[in-house]
Amino acid sequence: MENRPIRVLIAKVGLDGHDRGAKILTRALRDSGMEVIYTGLHQTPEMVVEAAVQEDVDVLGLSSLSGAHATLFPRVIAGLREAGLDDVLLVAGGIIPPEDVEELRAEGVAAVFGPGTPLATSIAFIKEHAPRNRGLGRRRSQ
């Protein structure tokens, strides 16, 4: 499956109602040739995990501006593991205090794109690190 476009899910978890950043990134990733699924606002961790499973995405971008990263991101990550989606590239965006960034990395978030991150930086990171050629993969938990 090496030649297929990178599939990305951009998800907003939690209660904040601002998704301009998520939408701008969605459009930028599309314009760089990716297939981007945007979930819309107010997703629960369970909804995000289910969308990642059904859409078979290579990349999951989690966005939060309201502190949800501390409580909801870990639930998404745990859900992904439970569903056997260990090879999905996880990135995060939004407002995340520096002291929390290390913790997210330890949980398995590959990169945190804070405010002001150039779009080109996010795009290049995703292009470089998205899993390719995932094959027919038997997933761990199934």
Partner: peptide, 23 residues
């Protein structure tokens, strides 16, 4: 660009946690 924004899911997420539905 060959890229695509797949946005229909936004309007179909009310049933997202139901395992009788696959979108």
């Amino acid at each position: 660009t060959g890229g695509a924004t797949l946005g229909d899911r936004i309007r179909m997420t009310q049933t997202a946690a139901d395992n009788g539905v696959f979108v």
